[in-house]
Amino acid sequence: MSEKKKIGFYWTGSCGGCQVSILDIDEMLLDVAEQAEIVFWPCAMDPKYEDVKAMDENEIDIMFINGAIRLDENKEMVELLREKTKEVVSYGSCACNGGVFGLGNLSSKDELLEKGYTNKTTDQGPFPQKITEVEEGELELAEMLDHIKPLDEHIDVEYYLPGCPPLPTQLEDALPALLDDEIEVEERDLITDKSVCDPCPMEREEKEIERLIPIQEATDIDPDECLLDQGILCMGPATAGMCEAPCTEVGHPCVGCNGPVKGVEDQGSRMASALASVMGIEGEENKTEEEVMETMNSVRDPTGSFYMFSLPSSIMQFRRDDIDE
């Protein structure tokens, strides 16, 4: 029997859901422990920066990294882990596509700090300082980066496993394949070719959407009919379908957390152009400009809707006037 693989899990800017998703594989964790040795897992163990630094190059076989790279400390740490790891898995939507945090790219760093600290409605706490003097000495805070970029723009990544968080089933499928050298896994093999529509059980018609209705204003939703057909913006058609459509199945539109299907670069623009093609298509040749605008304006918060999880990996990446390079 070959030597046990050494694996690790690391989180950067994150809600923690991805880490919980690892625990969610339940007993399988024991199987994993049999096949692999978990050498690094800040969530469960207490490794120090110095310990990692002391590791040999490529000492870790597989490193799962989730979360957004929001701080310089995140960046420094993932760069260090890259040195020590053979294969890095970009785990979860934040690492793969920037995730919800990526919507921060619509504001500049200063605006974000101002909103978060100076102009907040609750207590006016102290504005974060790089260095703070305390009795014990100086405390140094990590610096916020200007923008969020997906993990693969900071370091090379071998595999992508998106999801917010990835479902236990996804990890259960992925882990054995990654741990077994016999099985060949391509970079994006853990993402499906098909979209959420494929597993989605709702009845679909040809799309003739007159205008979109915000879900909270929609009344009389037919539980069996495609939400998009009913005028509710569902990102299903442009979203990778590894999740097996649990949201639409219970009547909630897909918000696009898995990011684009395999082979598609920009989830939001795909969805926007698809929707633009079918919206108001009935009698469109005779529509006045006002009527067309009315249809268009029914798309509320287009960026937030189309790019809720993938703005940093899109071709837009961030607000144009904020490009500082």
């Binding site: 003739e208 299907v261 698809a274």
Partner: peptide, 10 residues
Amino acid sequence: ICSGCKMCIS
């Protein structure tokens, strides 16, 4: 790859 969203049909 086709997931049957039916958008193309319209």
